[in-house]
Amino acid sequence: MITVSGPPSSGKTSVIGKTIEALEKKAIELAVIKFDCLSTADELIYEKKGIKTKLGLSGSLCPDHYFVNNIDACFHWGLKENVDILITESAGLCNRCSPHIKGILSVCVIDNLSGCHTPKKIGPMLKFADIVVITKGDIVSQAEREVFAYNVKMVNPKAKILHINGITGQGAAELGRLFLSANDYQNLDDKKLRFTMPAALCSYCLGETMIGKDYHIGNVKNMKL
């Protein structure tokens, strides 16, 4: 299994699609589980390419919590379907997302256009990834690419950095090669998240809509003003 995460619109689906294309010649059974929040048409993009896909929409729940509550079942679905490599794709909607699991190859996709300070603003999904894929390099200058990659290196010095063009697929074959060398597991028993997920348990989690101190119950944190 491989977890792929990254901010919305950073190019996760394109990168995964191109990587699968690059792997197709190797006759490997692949499937993608797409986690999203509201609605998405990305599963159609995968299906169009003939890739086995399942879609999970978290709706009003924290997508990260939804992910971790379902990942075990997804893994078993993959086993049942005789999938060799199961890729999970999840959008990091709050930058504090943390879908990576210890021992499971983890990828963070982030794009050059998001601004050169963005790497510093992204939490565990970037900091604790094994591979950082940087996209949209064709739209910026060499120097901007270098500064961006440097800033990624500053927040996650251990990661391998790959540059992939999600449109032409340049670099995707190399990511595919790294996918093939990912650890193999028969189950997710005793596996742990690399980092805690964003926490919340307050009245608003349970549907409260009123504003005001009287309605604040549970895990509440106040701003210093």
Binding site: G115, G137, D138, E144
Partner: peptide
């Protein structure tokens, strides 16, 4: 490899 692509614009502010 450093690449000078067809792109002629900077995006950095």
């Amino acid at each position: 490899i450093s690449q000078l692509s067809q792109n002629m614009n900077f995006v950095m502010d």
